[in-house]
Design a protein around this nucleic acid. Sequence first.
DNA 1: GCCAACGTTGGC
DNA 2: GCCAACGTTGGC
Length: 164
Amino acid sequence: MRYWLMKTEPSAFSLADLKGRPGRTAPWDGVRSYQARNLMRDEMRAGDRVLFYHSSVLPPAVVGTAKVVREAYPDHTAWDPDNEHFDPRSTPENPVWVMVDIQFESEFPVPVTLPELRSIPQLKDMVLLRKGSRLSVQPVTPREFASILQHAQRLAQQARQGPR
DNA sequence: GCCAACGTTGGC
DNA sequence: GCCAACGTTGGC
């Protein structure tokens, strides 16, 4: 099983949106980067786990987790001229872009913010934290995934204990 | 709103 | 094939 981090601007699609979908499942459409597409198409498998990351908000943060429930298939939004991600190079006969389906798994009671991620020594090599990193679908090591879950748990526990 | 970093485009 | 110009991403 592999681990991933997927970025989204919550104003466009948030973890709450995913949770609210039928079956708590939604297609991850609109990816228009070859690098991200190749990862989804060639590497991502059903059952893989995903860190759900909110970008372009203050603070940016990992807000929960999801699971890949359907492997890559053609992204039909690329064929729709009215869609903001329309790409005339892609056709039903020859699809250029793919998407996967992901299912809501968990929402962290307290998000793990970007500054917090930077403070965790085990994450020093994480793709997300590299300078200029903007890949919207990126691999995460099992160790990194575990560290982030552990940190989220610790934050949740502190919150339950309340302010000192 | 600014701007650094990155990917893509297109002239040559 | 090079590379400058451009558009986009995303943190701040």
